[in-house]
Write a protein that binds this DNA or RNA. Structure first.
Lengths: 230, 230
DNA sequence: GGTACATTTCGATCACCGTCGAATCGTACG
DNA sequence: CGTACGATTCGACGGTGATCGAAATGTACC
């Protein structure tokens, strides 16, 4: 007689402010320790542990013991997807409270979001691709055009391998700081990896900051027509 | 200092069992009266009214007064999208409790889901399209291939107008009864409308049942290779 | 081995919120 | 105009769950 699968318990899991803050923090993609999550949520370690236990039992996060701390991460991309969708909905319905992205300029410029590039640079890249019709669509749903395919192949990416992944190839991901979309999905992740490999970008350890090399800045300006002040 | 937009309040709104049941019922797309939703959720009219007030204030649903009752519907396709994503996640994490879709055979065979076709027939159609590589992808993210474009154009649909819509052209929607996906999105909706126009299908008033005409059954078998016992 | 620290468990407190009974408002129907 | 019914409001009750203090586990570092 009951209609739905347990949307209720799942949503209730995300419905607590402390847990929601934890999940939002984990959306960046990197695993965080229980203590960090406690501070992130603004609760004591004990309550945090309780919440983490529930989230874990609910299948939303997974914890890995390493030494004397436990690193928690989102259980999978689909969880991140739901959270992003929720964020977008909150955006639209005006449920956002303040929400002025990161204060640090370096974070605003380029940072890691789950597994792809976010920040001004991420938004600029997607803008450039859509302006040249290499990616079409808007909002969350994006599609790679034929011109886009040749473009990313020229960049040295294996389109076939990317398409074979279960997750969507292209996806728009709402950027908190700019309130605009950047490129996520398999292609977004692969692009960032490619930037690393080419030495254009480097991940600052311990933070979400992605720093761009001089060569990278040059390349971005040339390829994407993106000019960023040093 | 706070990190996320108010995912928490939004999720908490969906986190109550009664409200979740209401939202799940509204996922079918047709507006329901407060009384119907109360019965659907298994609560009294007063508590239902309270819940509806909160959902409305939260921007998830919208109510229209008509005569002496109030018809409530989901505020928009994005709300349905989040709900579907949540359902999918609940599916994957095994949070589903029992959940044996509708009992009525007619409902199991073909019914309206929001604005597109669901049920065995809906699943079969998507199966047929993917088997012939007219639609590629899996899960929630689907893309129309070149072969698919010519196919639906031949069916008399205006692809340009469909792509111009803000919502995604193709989307997978998890079918409760079968636990498999059927075609949603702009194309899914347009297809159902086309079926109506061609006299292949008809919406049973007052229910979610979609009944198929003899001509429709013939056409479905011919075009999609779908054989359904009468 | 002993101390420090991260995490978890247990237990108790307390606030919030879902629930329903009774009453009110508004519309439809005769 | 009066009755019937759907929807909402008000008020009170009760239970679930978040929270933290205290204590227990387990790991690292010396």
């Amino acid at each position: 007689m009951k209609v739905g699968p347990d949307i209720a318990t799942l949503a209730a899991l995300m419905g607590d402010p402390a847990r929601a803050n934890m999940l939002a923090a984990l959306c960046a993609g990197q695993a965080l320790t229980a203590g960090e999550l406690a501070r992130e949520a603004g609760v004591t370690a004990q309550t945090a542990s309780s919440h983490l236990g529930k989230l874990s039992a609910g299948g939303l996060i997974a914890g890995r013991k390493q030494g004397r701390h436990v690193y928690y991460a989102l259980a999978g991309p689909d969880v991140a997807g739901v959270l992003e969708a929720l964020t977008g909905l909150a955006e639209r319905t005006g449920h956002t409270r303040l929400r002025t992205g990161p204060r640090e300029p370096a974070l605003r410029r380029a940072r890691v979001c789950y597994d792809h590039l976010a920040g001004d640079m991420g938004v600029a890249i997607l803008d450039s691709l859509t302006a040249r019709s290499m990616i079409v669509g808007s909002g969350e749903t994006l599609v790679l055009s034929a011109a886009g395919e040749t473009f990313i192949t020229a960049l040295g990416l294996d389109l076939g391998a990317l398409s074979a992944q279960r997750r969507p190839l292209c996806k728009g991901c709402l950027d908190w700081s700019v309130r605009r979309s950047h490129l996520a999905g398999a292609l977004g992740a692969a692009l960032l990896q490619r930037f690393y490999a080419l030495g254009w970008a480097r991940r600052e350890s311990g933070t979400r900051i992605v720093s761009l090399s001089a060569r990278g800045l040059e390349a971005f300006r040339e390829i994407f027509g993106v000019a960023v002040e040093a």
